[in-house]
Write a protein that binds this DNA or RNA. Structure first.
Lengths: 168, 168
DNA sequence: TTATACTTTCAAAAAGTTTTGAAAGTGTGT
DNA sequence: ACACACTTTCAAAACTTTTTGAAAGTATAA
């Protein structure tokens, strides 16, 4: 396999993974493209490479910037904007974890806390089932939250070192 | 808040979370409903409670069974089938991790391994960028894979105990 | 065998999401 | 003030996913 083909495969695989995880395919593909580009690219180049429209490219790049995965670059004497991706995998992983935690885990934790407080007839089997599920899920979610918290603060080597040592 | 309202909120929250994580909303809602039901339910009851069609209920329940999250129950002298959800949160988490690993992580690891082997001109900056990204992501993915592997084998208390101890 | 009680299928409809591209907007230099 | 080079917007179109429901299938019992 040579580079050109390999690059396409990578973009495709990243796009597929993204769409399975609730990130839109194009967004994941643009990210992939920037990841494997040595230089920052213009909107035009992104449009070209992936055959997508201007509107789509613009919107997707903005969203990637919101996620903290891509940055704009300004070049002396040029009006166009260039875009490049953060290349450090650990930083990417943390960034994604951070965003999803904020957007998805936090709201769920809030609801669960409320629901865990709901009082009911302790003889009602449905109340018992409800209460047990909510309480248990709440505990699990809090553990996940704590782990993410740590991961966000940690150095990559320390994080995996610690996790994998425990598991050996 | 009383139970009826709380149950609806839980179903809604679970459905939303599911759809953000690439699991279809209805599937997550049916799962939520079964989680907070003391008794196993019939297709009819699921249809009723969530106002969904027969086809949808049938298809969704089958899919939940495929994921190993729901089981059928047969009752003496009755023809209908009853459905109930695995209630242990840790088992649910493991089951989901197991399925997603099989369906999504494994294929990506395969592609990455291939792509990491691609040879190219070590003076080409694009080759270098490509190679670095692929190699790094591959390493990260393998770490995630190892962690999941351990999680699948582990007891809940041991797993979180170990992780949280390291992080204190 | 036939009726009954249920489950499964699947093509078509509905709903939801993503993409397009032309038009509007913005900021800079002359 | 105007032209230029670029970016942003957004309504409509394309595409994808989910849902429906009627029809077909299956198993049981009389």
């Amino acid at each position: 396999m040579e580079l050109t083909e390999a690059r396409l495969k990578f973009i495709e695989a990243w796009g597929k993974l993204g769409s399975e995880w609730g990130i839109n395919r194009t967004m994941a593909q643009v990210h992939a493209l920037l990841l494997i580009s040595a230089e920052a690219l213009t909107t035009e180049q992104v449009m070209e490479s992936l055959s997508i429209s201007r509107g789509n490219a613009n919107m997707t790049l903005r969203e990637l910037i919101n996620w903290g995965l891509v940055e704009k670059q300004h070049r002396q004497g040029e009006r166009k904007e260039y875009f490049f991706a953060e290349k450090d995998t650990w930083t990417i992983a943390r960034q994604v974890a951070k965003e999803r935690r904020k957007r998805e885990l936090d709201p769920v934790l809030k609801v669960l806390d409320e629901l865990a407080k709901v009082k009911g007839d302790s003889k009602d089997p449905d109340y018992k089932a409800f209460n047990k599920s909510v309480t248990d899920i709440n505990k699990l979610a809090k553990n996940v939250d704590k782990t993410l918290e740590t991961m966000l603060k940690a150095e990559e080597s320390w994080f995996w070192g610690s996790i994998l040592k425990v598991f050996k």
